[in-house]
Each structure stands twice: as C-alpha cells, then as structure tokens.
Amino acid sequence: MFGRARAHREFREAQRAGHALLHTMQSHPGFQPPAPPADQAPDPAAEAVVPDFLPPDLRVPSRQDVEGLMMRWQQPLVIDGEVRSCPECGAYRDWIIFSMCDDTIHLRCRAGHTTPEPRLDPVWFNRNSGPVDHFHPTLDEGLRHLGH
C-alpha cells in the first residue's frame, strides 16, 4: 500500500516538473515549435478539406424545418391536479400531444378533436417525450405511425 502511494507521488512530481519545463520553454521569447522533418513530403490527402458535416441523405431536419413534434400519451393527462378531457367528446386518455413551432401545445383525442392546451409548454413536452425516432412528411402519416 505504501509503495503504491510513493509511486503515485513520484509520478505527480514528475508530471509537475514536465509541465513547468514545458511552460518555461513556451514562454521563452525565442521559442519556435519544432518543424516537421524535411525529408517527409506533405501528404496531399491530409491537406484536403474534409467536410465536418454529414452528407445530405444522412441529415435529419432541424427544429426550424418541421412544423412541430408529436407524441402519444395513453394514460389520463393530469394538469394542475385535474384530469384533462376533450371538450367535445369527453375522452380523457389516449392523446396525441403536439408541440408546435410557435411554442404552443395542442391535444388531439382519439376521435380527432384538436384543442390547444395553454397550461403546457415546450419545456414540459421535452421533459416528457422521448427522442425523435421518425420524421413524417404529412400529419396523417405521423398520426398513422402513432396508431391514430
């Protein structure tokens, strides 16, 4: 146990000495970083600009490119201690919750009635939704994917 502590202490001291030497060398006014050997020719492939972004077919739309996000909420939706029900048909479970780009939240019941929910916000939606797993070109395709 004591030998290991001494080895760690010696390693830390050597590290500190190396850092101090490096700092002293770099702060010297005449310091020049070492040049690559002259006998090595530069590699043209290394100098080629490599794009740092995915190709277009692998990119996903950004938040600004979609009209909103949706998730399924099967259990009763409780907001401020009350169970939220559809004002038209009275349904209180199996919602599709939409988070729109204008920061509003809308609820859609199984019967297709859509109503805004001002007591919820995108922060609540992000906290309760999972990661985005599909992008759909139309609302109908998204609803079909979620089983509505």
Rank of each mutant, 00 (worst) to 15 (best):
T115H: 09
P55I: 09
D39L: 10
P56G: 02
V50E: 02
E141D: 14
A35C: 07
C101D: 15
V132H: 01
E88K: 14
L58M: 02
P116Q: 11
W124L: 01
D80P: 09
Q75E: 04
L120C: 08
D43L: 12
A38E: 14
D52M: 04
R108G: 00
G3C: 05
E117G: 05
S99D: 00
V83W: 11
D140Y: 08
E13C: 14
F53M: 04
D65W: 00
G68H: 07
V50W: 06
M1G: 08
R9C: 05
H148L: 14
W124S: 01
G18S: 04
M100C: 08
E47W: 05
H134F: 03
R63W: 08
E82Q: 02
I97H: 00
R93Q: 15
P42L: 11
A41H: 14
P29T: 05
T104N: 01
D43S: 15
E47M: 02
D94I: 07
R59I: 09
H136T: 06
D57F: 01
P87R: 02
T24A: 14
G112Y: 05
D121T: 13
T115C: 13
L21G: 01
A17L: 15
R127K: 09
L139P: 00
F135V: 02
H136C: 12
A35P: 11
I105H: 02
M70A: 03
P118K: 01
G81R: 08
C86K: 11
Q40S: 15
P29R: 07
P33I: 03
A111Q: 03
Q15T: 05
H28C: 07
L120N: 06
P122F: 06
Q40I: 15
P87S: 01
E141L: 09
A20D: 12
S85T: 03
F53C: 03
H106A: 13
F2E: 10
N128S: 03
R144Y: 05
C89F: 06
R144N: 11
L21F: 05
G68W: 12
G112R: 02
P33F: 11
A45M: 06
A20M: 10
H28G: 06
R119W: 13
G147A: 05
L146V: 12
P61S: 04
L58T: 00
T24Y: 09
P116R: 14
Q75G: 12
R127W: 10
E141T: 03
P76A: 15
A35I: 07
H148K: 13
W73V: 00
L77R: 02
M25R: 15
D80M: 12
E141S: 11
P33K: 05
D133M: 04
D43N: 15
D140G: 08
